[in-house]
């Protein structure tokens, strides 16, 4: 099949960048989207042009590295599918395909379609963990966990940290990512001790990174390759408000009679 690609080209962080058009004439419908990109790069290399830089690694939909907005949708037109799991047969012969990087001021473009997602790591650093050391731990069956709750926690934990939620959100908000991790840990008994402090520190870091605000569009959920639910955003909102308004700030302060 033949396709026309319109690809965002940007040589470095400081470059202004722009869309560039390429023709590919010999694409098999059996190719994955990234294999099509490999073909483009082979063609560019042969023509003495610079190949298109794009992030990818596992190519089986779990590492979260691939990150392209394809025809206006994060990871392209198939629901619950990462770019690497998208196939050319999902496009028509002669298709015009627009490929852009994640757009967010918190995800600056490094080159072409490659963006810097270290903001996500910093959100995790702010509290996306259960404080722990390696060593002997209590017997896990001594703390039973309702299977439904374990499954719900896993629904949240299945986030691959690709950033599609940010890319898809009309506001560039990172609430789904932050909520998924905070909820995963907040749902489990092991994560209770730090539940409210975690909600606060993670949200504060998220704000600092310059993501937009959540407007309850649910576009993040619709374009998330793992279909993570906005229910977790509700939970984070609840935890965060409780942390900010209800949780005592001064548990051990002085008290007097009157």
């Amino acid at each position: 099949m033949k396709i026309s690609l319109h690809v965002w080209r940007q040589s470095s962080r400081d470059d202004r960048g722009g869309m560039k058009e390429y023709q590919l004439d010999d694409i098999s419908p059996e190719m994955s989207f990234l294999e099509m990109m490999d073909c483009l790069n082979e063609q560019l290399t042969q023509n003495g042009e610079e190949p298109v830089a794009f992030d990818h690694d596992c190519r089986e939909g779990v590492c979260g590295m691939c990150s392209m907005v394809i025809n206006g949708e994060a990871h392209g037109p198939k629901a619950e599918t990462t770019t690497c799991q998208l196939y050319m047969r999902h496009f028509e012969d002669g298709a015009q395909i627009y490929i852009e990087p994640w757009r967010s001021s918190a995800f600056p473009v490094i080159k072409d379609l490659v963006v810097d997602r270290s903001a996500f790591d910093r959100i995790i650093q702010a509290g996306g963990f259960i404080s722990n050391h390696s060593g002997p731990k209590p017997e896990p069956n001594s703390i039973p966990i309702e299977p439904e709750i374990a499954e719900q926690a896993l629904d949240a934990a299945t986030c691959i940290g690709c950033g599609a939620c940010v890319a898809a959100c009309p506001n560039g908000s990172a609430m789904l990512f932050t909520a998924a991790k905070a909820s995963h840990l907040g749902l489990l008994p092991q994560g209770q001790t730090e539940r409210y402090s975690r909600a606060k520190t993670m949200v504060n870091q998220m704000e600092e990174e310059g993501f937009g605000s959540c407007r309850n569009y649910a576009e993040c959920e619709a374009q998330c390759p793992k279909g993570i639910s906005i229910a977790f955003i509700g939970q984070l909102n609840s935890d965060y408000l409780k942390a900010s308004l209800v949780e005592p700030v001064d548990r051990r302060g002085e008290m007097h009679s009157q």
Binding site: I130, G135, K137, E139, P140, P144, P147
Partner: peptide, 23 residues
Amino acid sequence: TAIIDQAVSQGVPFAREYGGKLA
């Protein structure tokens, strides 16, 4: 066995049975 204990304490959501024990 210590690996399972360690992972659970980190919040790894292993599959559970109805009684809440590890599957």
